[in-house]
Design a binder for these strands. Structure first.
Length: 589
RNA sequence: GCACCCAUAGCUCAGCUGGAUAGAGUGCUGCCCUCCGAAGGCAGAGGUCAUAGGUUCGAAUCCUAUUGGGUGCGCCA
């Protein structure tokens, strides 16, 4: 398997450090910060010399010849306090570009130690329409699934519906009040029940907010909801049948929103699916003395002596005999361990849940399910409005994801219409392209931010074709496709890539960074590294394109063939990278 | 009160093991289309990296304190 140049050089470099009796980690090689001086650099000599009590420049002078031995290296220089500046040969760059063009991973590489991983993302609640906050879980989770899968991990993505808590009780009593004669509410009716749902998604979106509001003011109403949840969880047939309807109606609506964003799941499981596992789990924990009764509730003590903060116990079963998301999350781990047996479970959930997950992870370890360090909460920040506070509509309410998708589509369509190039397109084609542009805008805008930070939502900026946006990336890809189409029309074929000009060198060096970007994105579970790479690649291409003519008359055939080959390599890597981000480029736009 | 996250250009954000002159985008100024998609490219101005100490030959990056902003902390999920 061929590796990227940076990794090849690092290999030579770390061997050189080892030969000097120093730690291999000093051999790290990265792209040069000073492109006018070199292609790559190694900074390890300073640190290693310090630790070993050596002179850094002398050490660098010893290491340099080892690197210079590598066939890919044109020259190595010691600079400043002990930097190693490495320039690679044009031939090595040419071969690298050729590799990207022909490799089925476009220069990306599989992980060294692939794992079996479950990714839990999405987490929409039944009956509650998704809002802007759900965009992040969906897009980040989906991208991480694509990324891990691309790198060879065995991945299962699970939506993990919220369908077991108090909101189900609220829905049950709200429907009961509206349609008291339905068979679901007859105490002794054990079914069968009608197969057609008694409510639509619109009904649910209307009912839930009002029921939720009322439960906060009306204690009697809240008690009824709690009672309904307890009965549903206890297995009351009519309520279970109603729950199934709620889930089915909601899932159909969720799929519409997710599909707009091209977000997919392998499993559509929910909290309710682990219900059968809860009773045996609780019984087992009691027998093993891991759970104890406290104030009428069954809890697991998870506090540790070294804790610096309060660590309330894990609430297995509350004093009313009901189970909440502590129990379902733990039971979900039981389910995943039994059904899938993963090395690791990742939770892509709002950062505000970090305390909850610490509790769940501690409990999991304590009861011997899966070690705490195999469970990762990949928290993310909030989506904020221009005021820096969580995004609200002008009326002050939350913006629904469905409405957000529509707004993005309208904005994208408008901007496509402003360009001259779409004038000969049919309405359908414009519709398809508008959707791809809107999706690229939303996904890239979200993913380019470091996962853990909040970001400011600005639809106008996200959908712009100028700047660091999804549409710009699409434009870059579409432009390359147009060149290749024209080339094909004129029977110009791509040929051996020969790197010569400065812009070509920079472009191929950009291509070389793909493997590293993927590695960083996977190791840190941070998709923005990939966004940075893809954007940098598109920029390097634009610079190349402006400086290096391809199809113009005066370009001699060999050079044209080489540059067309480079175009193919760039397009391939660009589309590969974009596909991991869940972004698809049209043929034209 | 305790714990966690954050503070980088007017604005929105990058910055991997501590390293050379802190980078993009946007906005502003000036260039570049009689055929490759200008939705582009090139150049310029713009920063005491919140503040004060410390570790180090070297700190946006590591440590401590302070200020300012966000979030969470037993039966809602």
């Amino acid at each position: 398997m061929m590796t990227d140049l940076a990794a090849q050089l690092a290999g030579a470099c770390l061997a050189a450090f080892e030969a000097e009796g120093l730690d291999a980690r000093w051999g790290a090689v990265k792209r040069s910060d000073r492109p006018e001086l070199a292609d790559f650099q190694c900074n390890g000599c300073m640190g290693a010399a310090k630790q070993a009590g050596m002179n850094p420049r002398e050490l660098a002078a010893k290491i340099a010849p080892h690197i210079a031995d590598n066939v890919a290296v044109a020259r190595v220089e010691v600079a400043g306090p002990g930097f190693l500046n490495i320039v690679v040969t044009d031939a090595a760059l040419s071969a690298g570009a050729e590799h990207v063009r022909t490799d089925d991973k476009a220069g990306g590489q599989a992980a060294f130690a692939p794992e079996k991983i479950v990714v839990d993302y999405g987490g929409p609640n039944v009956a509650k329409p998704m809002h802007v906050g759900h965009l992040r879980a969906a897009v980040i989770g989906d991208t991480i699934v694509r990324l891990l899968r691309f790198m060879g991990d065995d991945v299962t993505g699970d939506v993990h519906l919220g369908d077991w808590g108090l909101q189900m009780g609220l829905l049950i009593i709200a429907v009961m009040d509206e349609q008291p004669d339905l068979p679901y509410f007859e105490t002794d009716n054990t079914g069968p029940f009608p197969t057609a749902p008694p409510v639509t998604m619109d009904d649910l979106s209307r009912i839930y907010p009002s029921a939720s509001r009322r439960s906060k003011e009306d204690e009697v109403y809240a008690k009824r909801a709690q009672q309904a949840v307890a009965e549903m969880q206890a297995g009351r047939a009519g309520y279970r049948a109603l729950l199934k309807h709620f889930i089915n109606v909601s899932v159909a609506a969720l799929k519409v929103d997710y599909s707009f964003l091209d977000v997919a799941f392998d499993l559509w499981k929910g909290e309710s699916d682990v219900d059968p596992l809860i009773a045996p789990m609780v019984a087992d924990l009691k027998v093993r003395n891991l759970a104890r009764l406290d104030d009428g509730a069954w809890i697991i003590d998870i506090a540790r002596d070294e804790d610096k903060k309060d660590m309330p116990p894990f609430m297995l079963v509350n004093s009313r005999g009901a189970t909440g998301y502590h129990a379902t999350d733990l039971a979900t781990i039981v389910d995943r361990v039994e059904q899938i047996g993963p090395d690791r479970i990742l939770y892509v959930v709002d950062a505000r849940q970090s305390f909850h997950f610490e509790q769940v992870f501690r409990a999991s370890e304590k009861v011997g399910l899966i070690a705490q360090d195999r469970l990762e909460h990949l928290g993310f920040g909030t989506v904020n409005g221009p005021d820096g506070k969580p995004f609200k509509t002008r009326e002050g309410g939350t913006l629904r994801l469905a409405d957000l998708n529509t707004l993005a589509l309208e904005e994208a369509t408008k901007k496509i219409g402003e360009a001259k190039l779409s004038s000969d397109m049919s309405a359908e084609e414009r519709g398809v392209i508008g959707k791809l542009v809107a999706r690229a805008a939303l996904r890239f805008a979200d993913l380019q931010n470091q996962r853990t930070t909040n970001y400011v939502f600005d639809l106008d900026r996200f959908t712009s074709f100028e700047g660091k946006t999804g549409p710009y990336l699409l434009y870059a890809a579409v432009r390359i496709k147009a060149i290749l189409r024209r080339a094909a029309d004129n029977a110009h074929k791509a040929g051996a890539i020969v790197v010569a000009s400065d812009e070509e060198r920079r472009l191929v060096l950009a291509l070389d960074g793909f493997a590293l970007a993927l590695r960083l994105a996977r190791d840190k579970r941070m998709p923005h590294y990939l966004c940075e790479h893809v954007y940098g690649l598109a920029q390097a291409f634009s610079t190349f394109y402006a400086a290096c003519p391809i199809l113009k008359q005066e370009v001699e055939p060999g050079l044209r063939a080489s540059r067309l080959g480079l175009c193919e390599a760039v397009l391939k890597q660009l589309e590969t990278g974009l596909s991991i981000l869940g972004i698809t480029a049209p043929e034209r736009m």
